[in-house]
Simulated scan of single mutants.
Amino acid sequence: MDKQVLLINDLAGYGKVALSAMIPVLSHMGYNLYNLPTALVSNTLDYGKFDILETTGYIRNTIGVWKELGFCFDAVSTGFIVSELQAGVIAEYCREQAGNGTLIFVDPIMGDEGKLYNGVTQQTVGHMRRLTEVADYIVPNYTEAVYLAGMPYKKDGITKEEAGNLIDRLRQIGAKSVIVTSACVEGNDTVIGYDHKTGQRFFLTFTLIPVRFPGTGDIFSSVLMGKVLAGEGLRESTQKAMDIVKEMILRNRDNVDKFKGIPVEVCLELIDI
């Protein structure tokens, strides 16, 4: 599988999240991987104390060098973006790449449980909309989806009709296919999907495991992207990503230090199920 995949995300020195989680997963799936770190992070943020080095200048310079060298990719995946300025640089690069036929996967990491993360502003939301405009696939959680769509967050959940309206709004912005995770639809924990290739919506329910690991969203996005790039349908790819993340959580649920994330390298055989 000779596909070139660029991952634009942060790199944690301590903990299996973002690039540290995605690279092992997609390498195992057979892709040629390249990376553009949006920040160097001392450790996962769950520890409560951390240091972040933003890399916007490096990103801008690297993109310039890559253009001169003629580097191109079959797919680009974006994740954590540190600042409004960085979001603008990355959005412009993805727009250029999309114009060359590159598939764009966007995980618009901005918030959860109805709130934006510290440091994420409405201007950042606007830049994430610019990424959404050129995205072939977006994978927001429910909170991020409503912020992108400019719709209200409903703590008690939504109906299937409201879920459909949310998908429609994200597609109006420009996203082709949409996966919304961590939603509650008519009382059930649900992943909501829309596949632009088939024109079909789907609702995949799951049972929430009461254990939290950072980085599970990155693993989910990686498996989903890997399966889609391998030619599998979006619904099937989404279900497989859900199943694999579930098995990884169950295998590691008794780990003492969950803030490290899941030790992906010792779980890779689960991807082959």
Rank of each mutant, 00 (worst) to 15 (best):
L148Y: 10
Y137H: 07
P263N: 13
P152E: 07
V228L: 13
A39I: 07
L6E: 05
Q172W: 04
M128W: 12
V266E: 15
K227S: 07
L204T: 08
G64I: 00
K154Y: 05
Y58F: 14
I59Y: 05
G88M: 03
P152R: 02
V228E: 03
I273P: 00
K49I: 12
R60G: 00
G64E: 11
G126S: 15
P140K: 04
I173S: 10
D10K: 07
I209W: 06
E92C: 03
Y142K: 00
T124D: 03
L270V: 07
I192R: 13
G199V: 13
A183F: 04
R251N: 12
T143Q: 06
V5S: 02
A149G: 03
A135Q: 11
G119M: 09
T238W: 01
V41W: 05
A21H: 06
Y117Q: 06
F50M: 07
N100W: 07
I179L: 13
T190D: 07
A18H: 05
E54P: 01
T78W: 11
H196R: 12
S42I: 11
G13P: 01
L270M: 15
S77K: 14
L45G: 00
G88L: 02
H127I: 00
P140H: 06
Y117G: 05
I52R: 05
K246S: 08
V266N: 15
